[in-house]
Amino acid sequence: MSNALAITNLTYRKNYQTILTDVNLTITPGKVVGLLGENGAGKTTLMRLIADLAKGYRGTIAVGDATAGVQRRIAVSFSEALQGFRPTTKLSAVRDFYARVYGDFSAKKYLDLITFLQLDDDLELAKLSKGTREKFIIALTLSREATLYLLDEPFSGIDSMSRKRIISSIIKWKRPEATMIISDHYVTEIAPLLDEVVVIKDRTICAHKSSDAIRQEFGIGVEAFYESLYEGAIQHDDL
């Protein structure tokens, strides 16, 4: 069985700056992976490279067996910002757009998700608060039966109560063999659902460990591990 994601020797430069260098990452199917790093570390860029939104990189990116851009876009469900829609577009029109262009869009799953997230899809995009908009993006992203979900800071702006409710249930919205990568700053809150953690630091992946291994080897939780890496309490040699 092939990996859900395999990145080999990935380097990405833009405007004379190296954003990511020598990134190697392999993720097996069915995992929920936390992509952690400080602001500007390259988490969003890595997701955009996987989703074929960022170009001009060196190295290879494979989602399942697919390395070509269009094949990756078929396999990946990325939490996009809905830039392409007018502010007066109704949520139901965005749903119709998704249903039309994505063969793996499940109308039933969408209905379940908007019911669960208490969204009214008769509303217009402009009428949504930041948090409600993020909830809607989560609903759209998870309504696809994708191989790989990329959730880029999906909980920003969502109130803490809803956030906890979504996080505790997020796993049920994906098929067991599907993989989910979540980048978020609410590390403590997402930690319980993470099977693995990937930390980006100094423009590359400095750690990739399972949550269990972190607890066993270091005797600390995911957030403490992540902070220790950044503060230098855990060195590269310790990994």
């Binding site: 989703a51 876009r73 996009e80 910002a81 809905l82 392409g84 994505y102």
Partner: peptide, 16 residues
């Protein structure tokens, strides 16, 4: 020109 650089459209599973 906007369409060429919008996430919404560039994510479409369609060849360039």
């Amino acid at each position: 020109e906007h369409d060429w650089v919008q996430d919404t459209y560039r994510l479409l599973p369609v060849t360039n």
